[in-house]
Computed example of a mutant assay.
Amino acid sequence: MRLMIFGAGFSGLAIARELAGDCGFAGGTTRSHERFSNLEAAGLKPFIYQGGLPEGELGAALQDITHLVMSIAPDADGDPLLDAFSAGGLKQAMPRLEWVGYLSTVGVYGDHGGGWVDETTVCKPVSKRSVARVAAEKGWIDLAGRADVPAAVIRLSGIYGPGRNALKTLDSGRARRLIKPGQVFNRIHVADIGGATALLVRSRLGGIFNVTDDMPAPPQDVVEHAAGLMGVEPPPETDFETADLSPMARSFYGENKRVSNARIKAAGFSFAYPDYHAGLGALWNDGTWKG
């Protein structure tokens, strides 16, 4: 396998670590030379990518790539890589390509009043960023179909892991217990993103998969559980309606749903951290919560 991860950030690096033993070559892109050491530590050869059709050393490396993971979020102008590859097609840039994975978000489902959704649920995104994700998902599925390679759309819920979790937020004094009756969110440990993506890669599976935990829960419950692990008092409750929140933070609470992970389980994946109790407990016990 020769792997390229566009946008090798928190999730991309977890995928790289999980697939390190499978790869004859693994590369990843970033926007800054300052992050090269992070990519190299995960076993990736780093490349700079800032948009447009990949050229130079990166373009040459793509000629031998067999597996592509796209982890760059669309911006106001759309998906940069999708737009770059649309004219000539994927096989022109990557003639040996066998599989495509696109990291998306459960935000594409929009608001379902706390009800359950799965991969057959019609998407009705609320925010502009989720509308752009729906368009990008369709674009990658269509582009991979033209190249006759399977495409897996991997819809992720709220990501946490080493250095990015409720324990660290509490420790820094930034945690809040916002109360909005009936509100729930799903979460996913970054290691399970790596594991689930690796399963799809190794099986060359295409389709849409929710990669999310078993326990949609109110956000204040997660803060309380983290406080219990640390042996500290949780922050006071704050009413959501009167809380001082940024427009983006408030928009997250406009989407309320419970997301099913039955399809990725049926494909053979077992979660290492099926709920936030297991995930936060492991981070606390081994000290990796600090990052």
Rank of each mutant, 00 (worst) to 15 (best):
residue 163 G to T: 07
residue 99 W to N: 06
residue 203 S to D: 09
residue 99 W to Y: 11
residue 138 K to N: 13
residue 189 H to K: 13
residue 193 I to M: 07
residue 143 L to W: 01
residue 143 L to A: 03
residue 193 I to R: 02
residue 117 V to N: 01
residue 194 G to K: 01
residue 88 G to R: 14
residue 144 A to Q: 03
residue 180 K to I: 11
residue 104 S to A: 09
residue 116 W to K: 11
residue 154 I to N: 00
residue 139 G to Q: 10
residue 107 G to I: 01
residue 127 S to R: 15
residue 98 E to G: 07
residue 98 E to H: 10
residue 83 D to V: 07
residue 208 I to F: 03
residue 123 C to V: 05
residue 173 G to M: 11
residue 140 W to T: 00
residue 97 L to S: 07
residue 189 H to Q: 14
residue 204 R to N: 11
residue 161 G to P: 03
residue 161 G to V: 05
residue 133 R to D: 02
residue 204 R to A: 14
residue 82 L to G: 12
residue 197 T to V: 15
residue 207 G to F: 00
residue 109 Y to F: 15
residue 172 S to G: 12
residue 130 S to E: 04
residue 190 V to R: 03
residue 110 G to W: 00
residue 149 V to T: 10
residue 199 L to G: 13
residue 128 K to N: 09
residue 179 I to F: 04
residue 123 C to S: 13
residue 94 M to S: 04
residue 102 Y to W: 05
residue 125 P to I: 02
residue 132 A to F: 04
residue 197 T to D: 09
residue 145 G to M: 00
residue 124 K to H: 14
residue 148 D to A: 13
residue 206 G to D: 02
residue 176 R to L: 14
residue 107 G to P: 02
residue 177 R to C: 13
residue 83 D to C: 08
residue 91 K to P: 08
residue 112 H to P: 06
residue 109 Y to Q: 06
residue 113 G to Q: 13
residue 93 A to K: 12
residue 83 D to M: 12
residue 172 S to F: 14
residue 124 K to Y: 10
residue 92 Q to K: 15
residue 170 L to Q: 07
residue 100 V to R: 00
residue 84 A to M: 06
residue 182 G to D: 14
residue 206 G to Y: 00
residue 81 L to M: 14
residue 178 L to H: 06
residue 126 V to N: 08
residue 149 V to I: 08
residue 113 G to D: 06
residue 135 A to T: 14
residue 194 G to M: 03
residue 170 L to D: 02
residue 158 G to L: 06
residue 206 G to L: 03
residue 125 P to C: 09
